[in-house]
Design a protein around this nucleic acid. Structure first.
Lengths: 335, 335
DNA sequence: GGAAATTTGCAAGACGTTTTGCATGCGTCG
DNA sequence: CGACGCATGCAAAACGTCTTGCAAATTTCC
């Protein structure tokens, strides 16, 4: 109890009666160590409570063993789940995971990325919607690994992980068709976003697979918000004959659709069925509970983590990869 | 374009025609530097894109410049907001913020804390509900700064930041009383949790301030869930005369209360008013939109950050502190 | 113009780990 | 018995930054 000396690798070596070299090799496994000494060293490490200093290690190896997840919207429940997926894979490997919000002017994307590069993170998962080529470039130019969500695959700009929006939307529409609905309206969100385009494609695909023609009048485009959903729905509900079901671009829009339907004295799903997309928490709290598509946020996080890990631990890049994860239809009460 | 040499402080010194010492002091400000050279050095830093290596710095200073936020529930939208608050204060100071989930068995609290101590984070904000004294102890014993959410103030275990649950609940009840409601039921959650106890106290306080007696029959205790809210509400709605308003322990319970009311063919707020607590996203998506109390998650995050910063940057501790933040009543359509 | 105050340089040690080439000791196999 | 393979030790050089006491150079002030 003399000095508050931080226990270092040398102390371990001394206590285990081996050399520093050996202790280091027990930890890294870069040189064979006999089972007996390995056990002894590990026991001493335990006893002394030795923790290798990440700074010293990082200084020597050039890796910070830290990665970041950059998101653009704090309130979107998708991101925390994704972060948990990242954590599950990366924490056991000793990585520190930083979640950064880039929204508004206070912490814009540029300053967040600048901060992360200053901190020398080893990799970045860019889940921010408002990311530009410039940002991808800044990151890769700094020699930092990059994984993106959605976007076009570009050999310069790292791997991509995304959910199969098209397939998910096709499943929803197919579900309605199987239940006998035929006149199915689509209340979609912005078409200049990847989800907007891909989900529209899924709508088309399902109808095609059932041998049905697409009636363009049944498709409206608005914004991915509650009010966007309401106004789009009103437009469709004015049609004659009235659609039997409204497929919405996301859950928020679906809530708006239910507002519109209720406003006209109609019921869900009695008069009109409604579906959402994303499976946010509110989807199961609303009455009736919403049939929707679950976005595998957790699995997406894990996939990102594994790509990052590959990049960081291994051989130099072998081109960029794209991982597409399936989505899952959740049937509740609104259809 | 010869070698991919990482630019270090020595390169900056050379390019600016000053010594390493001076560059370092420009950055740290621990020694006066003339405006002229300071400007020159900063310009060169800019031109060369010099970024001080955090590992080297950390090794030398003994600080990782990283802090962690530990949460127990990924799906709780409170936490991301809090994280954003932390980020606002800490990122400009160069801190890396790691958000860790400790839930389930995969990543239990012990392993998460162990991980963070291994990583030598400078401070931890422990927002995990299932934290024990043992955990506080592990953290402080490692010399790591600690800030907790709720709990009893203990000189050994760091500062505390919390919201004024009692005051918030008193505001809700006062709001109802002002609108003329008199027979007000309380559908509360678990009493062995801090929110449960504090919110109950707020209910009492408001009635007392209006000079009214508390009718114990109007208070039921269940769990902080939708079904908990529903069953508690049913119990109260069976009373004769029926309560005019149901004050709920949180928003989820309020949704359950609305289920129960609707199930009996009654309307909100026509027959019975309902209030929630926490102001989760769903509170404004539900019909009618819920009157509730907004938990200042963002401000809580900032407060935690400032406490941490004080601890880390300054003079050794001056005892522990407790910060209590006010909550805000949000009046919507359910009252 | 001279004294005082301010600014800058020098040089080297720490911080704790990883890495490496070479040497040594030991057991085993043929 | 000689050779070989394996486990380990040694010593030292990085990695990039901060710190520091003292001396030299420069500026500021009367």
């Amino acid at each position: 109890m003399s000095k508050e000396h931080r226990v270092g690798i040398a102390d371990v070596a001394a206590a285990a009666a081996v050399s520093v070299t050996t202790v280091s090799h027990v930890l890294s496994g870069r040189r064979p160590v006999s089972e007996r000494t390995k056990a002894k060293v590990l026991r001493v490490i335990e006893e002394l409570g030795y923790r290798p200093d990440p700074s010293a290690r990082g200084l020597r190896t050039g890796r910070s063993h830290a990665v970041a997840l950059v998101v653009s919207d704090v309130t979107n429940p998708f991101y925390p789940l994704m972060a948990a997926g990242l954590q599950e894979v990366l924490q056991p490997e000793g990585f520190l995971i930083s979640v950064c919000v880039a929204q508004g002017t206070t912490q814009d994307l540029d300053s967040v990325i600048g901060h992360l590069l200053n901190r020398r993170v080893d990799g970045v998962v860019l889940a921010s919607l408002n990311a530009q080529d410039r940002h991808f470039n800044d990151i890769t130019a700094a020699g930092t690994a990059l994984v993106r969500l959605s976007g076009e695959l570009d050999p310069r700009f790292g791997d991509i992980v995304r959910a199969d929006d098209t397939g998910g939307m096709a499943d929803v529409v197919a579900h309605l068709l199987e239940r006998g609905y035929r006149r199915i309206g689509l209340v979609n969100g912005e078409l200049d976003s990847a989800p907007g385009r891909l989900r529209l494609a899924g709508y088309h695909r399902a109808l095609r697979e059932f041998g049905l023609d697409v009636d363009e009048d049944l498709i409206v485009t608005g914004s991915f918000t509650r009010t966007g959903g309401a106004s789009g729905s009103h437009a469709l509900l004015n049609l004659e004959p009235r659609p039997e079901a409204l497929v919405c671009g996301n859950d928020l829009m679906a809530v708006g659709a239910m507002d519109a339907i209720r406003e006209r004295g109609l019921t869900v799903p009695g008069d009109v069925a409604v579906t959402g997309y994303d499976d946010i928490e509110a989807a199961s709290l609303v009455t009736p509970r919403l049939t929707t598509v679950h976005n595998p946020a957790f699995e997406i996080g894990r996939a990102c983590a594994r790509l990052l890990l590959d990049r960081l631990s291994g051989t130099p890049s072998e081109g960029v990869r794209e991982v597409v994860l399936p989505q899952k239809l959740i049937v509740r009460e609104s259809t």
